[in-house]
Nucleic acid binder design. Structure first.
Lengths: 186, 186
DNA sequence: CCGTTCGTACAGTTATTTCTGTACAAAGTA
DNA sequence: TACTTTGTACAGAAATAACTGTACGAACGG
């Protein structure tokens, strides 16, 4: 915790204790984002910091090596959960959390789910055309046709799902989702 | 692959090759669901099966132990990605994938994200009231008040986000999301 | 009942991931 | 230019997770 505000030790203790619950709960649940428990904990730490933090400060607060802070914070930056900020006069890199969690959520889906959706869609489409070629080549074989059609109809349904998923992700990226599901209910 | 349809070895080869791309791509991307690569691969295998499969058949196809199949398939059942099915005459447990991927996606979010959202919301609210108590107790101390207000406003914004997230998840659970973002575009 | 067959608990092994300390390149400072 | 300071690559150590084989209880068939 930053010391610039000069709290009494008693106050500081009480504040740290209150923060701790949130830091740990959030840290634990961040595995949903595919990040490690300790990186989640780092995120929680940064969340309550009211000033950008250096790697050394993180290391001291987390009681971990600077190397780990470096890799942890890089993960968070890649996920756009944490931003690198500049401060004149300081040679050190400074980091602070992105406080707009709506944005964080949207960015996460753009980054991870869209990539997966597009890879899967690509694989499905390639395999679909491959199966269609097989269907033509062995046009007479009824048993094989039957099998191919079973696979093809599954693939078509999967493609339909991924097209939908891509569209859903688009609503996250564009912010349209907040028109469909408003941030505050009326 | 089930042999009941009696394909030629050549046809079977071609089919397996075509399926392989999809199985592996999907299997790899399933880490987004927090499942292991090999469990993802198992899912891909089941996807193309046109009959429910036993643990022994899975083990043979995956070249892995039956124990691993048992734990893998249990994970998939817990996530409602795979269903246990009954077939008279068979003493063995049979499993098949849930083919409705829209449903699978919705179930996954209900299960995992809602649980996390509720835990976080709970922690945030508890900490919020704890901070409010501190604010009352040290009503005169300006430096401390300043710090408490900084924390409280962050917490309020986080609470706002989780309330929204819960509402979003509700639209998945109720199927309302498919009214907001239609399965097929008009 | 007794003998099978099935699924899974459990303990041990193997494989993977996470974390640390050292070393070094980059960039600033004098 | 030499001297610091900073962030990260890299290799090894420590911690976790995944996988396997054995063993055993449950369910069924004779």
């Amino acid at each position: 915790m930053e010391r610039s505000e000069d709290l009494t030790p008693e106050q500081e203790q009480a504040l740290l204790k209150a923060r701790k619950r949130v830091i740990e709960t959030i840290g634990n649940n961040m595995e949903l984002y595919g990040i490690t428990q300790s990186t989640g904990h780092l995120y929680g730490l940064l969340f309550f910091q009211n000033k950008p933090m250096t790697l050394d400060e993180m290391g001291r607060a987390m009681e971990m090596s600077k190397t780990s802070m470096s890799t942890g914070v890089r993960t968070l930056v890649d996920l756009k959960m944490v931003n690198k900020v500049w401060e004149k006069g300081s040679r050190k890199d400074l980091y602070e959390v992105e406080l707009d969690w709506f944005q964080t959520f949207a960015d996460f889906f753009s980054l991870k789910w869209r990539k997966a959706a597009e890879m899967n869609l690509h694989a499905l489409r390639r395999t679909k055309s491959e199966l269609q070629e097989l269907a033509e080549r062995y046009a007479g074989d009824e048993a094989f046709q039957h099998q191919l059609q079973a696979d093809l109809s599954k693939i078509d349904e999967a493609i339909r799902y991924y097209i939908w998923l891509n569209r859903l992700i688009e609503t996250f990226e564009s912010g349209e989702i907040f028109k469909l599901v408003p941030k505050d209910m009326g």
